[in-house]
Design a protein around this nucleic acid. Structure first.
Lengths: 188, 188
DNA sequence: ACCTGAACACCGTTCAAGT
DNA sequence: ACCTGAACACCGTTCAAGT
């Protein structure tokens, strides 16, 4: 038995596979990346991945969990900004993993596991936006549709990637309409 | 030479392939349907499809064009309704081809032909919504973001399919915010 | 012009076998 | 426990050959 035998070899290899898959999925999208290629990039045979993950979708979800965990950590370390700025930050953050976002939506129709992850992510996002809008003063009974429109708008900005100016315009228009529901009359 | 030889045999077979593909794509989604299956349902060998279409994506686009043409015909034969009703009609119309909508978005990232079709469809939809909003009184210089939010909202309603009541709430909230931009004070 | 069987180069996944 | 080569049942597409 080698004396340098580390107890974490297994977790390390698993991590390498996730890292390789993440880079590939982000660059080319889920469909365009083969298990063969992920295996080559992480230094194992293709079927070895199945020792660590039940299937390709589960590997995909491991990637998504990792990306989400990192983004959450970053988000928590930031101070609270005005809503419009915060939404624009979220859009440009998610924009960097645009390919992953598109792949999630593509797989939702075919994989129960991906659909569950997607639904959970949506529920979380809606809860966050709802809290911000409530604190902004949007009355409780009008909150639901405004939250949904907000999430749809962010998703639309991600899947259609207009330029930065158009983004700002869209987010500003959304926040403005929310504020008018709140009856806010600020600095202006 | 058979005397019943119809000059339209070729077009007919082509049509049968599109019809079979349309039903299958609508029921199961693009990815889940094999050329083999489409061929079987239209009574030819799999490779015969390639005599009529350069590839699977082109067959898909033929399906999309057919669906769109039929929907346009139906739409033109209807009178003009209030904007909220019209948007709800569009959503429930497109909802019947939900699988196709999802498949278009899934293929946009991988097929130039599908991306072109998608972009054209979007441009047309935006133009229609823009015209309705302008006639409703939304000032020219604020039109762009409102149109985009509208299209994103419809897309969101399609890809997330909330129930009819939530749909109505979302569409009502959208139209209301557009009307408030127009400075309209109607019956209320 | 229209259609086919056979083949090509893939794909995700399984399995029996190795250490 | 971890990893592999080989195989399985697919996939979209191509090609040479038939009518």
């Amino acid at each position: 038995m080698p004396r340098n035998r580390r107890p974490r070899d297994s977790d390390e290899k698993r991590g390498e596979i996730v890292t390789a898959a993440r880079a590939l999925f982000a660059a080319r999208g889920y469909e365009a990346v083969s298990m063969q290629r992920i295996a080559a990039d992480s230094g194992v045979a293709a079927n070895t991945i199945y020792w660590y993950f039940p299937g390709k979708d589960d590997l995909f979800i491991a990637v998504l969990d990792q990306v989400l965990a990192e983004a959450s950590t970053r988000a928590l370390s930031e101070g609270q900004k005005p809503l419009a700025d915060q939404l624009l930050d979220i859009v440009s953050e998610l924009d960097q993993v645009n390919r992953l976002v598109a792949s999630v939506h593509a797989r939702v129709a075919y994989s129960d596991r991906v659909r569950e992850w997607h639904d959970g992510f949506h529920a979380g996002s809606e809860a966050l936006l709802r809290a911000r809008l409530a604190e902004l003063g949007v009355p409780e009974e009008r909150l639901d549709p405004v939250v949904r429109i907000g999430v749809f708008t962010i998703e639309g900005l991600l899947t259609h990637t207009p330029d930065a100016e158009q983004r700002r315009g869209v987010v500003a228009a959304y926040v403005q309409s929310a504020e008018s529901l709140a009856g806010v009359r600020r600095s202006s």
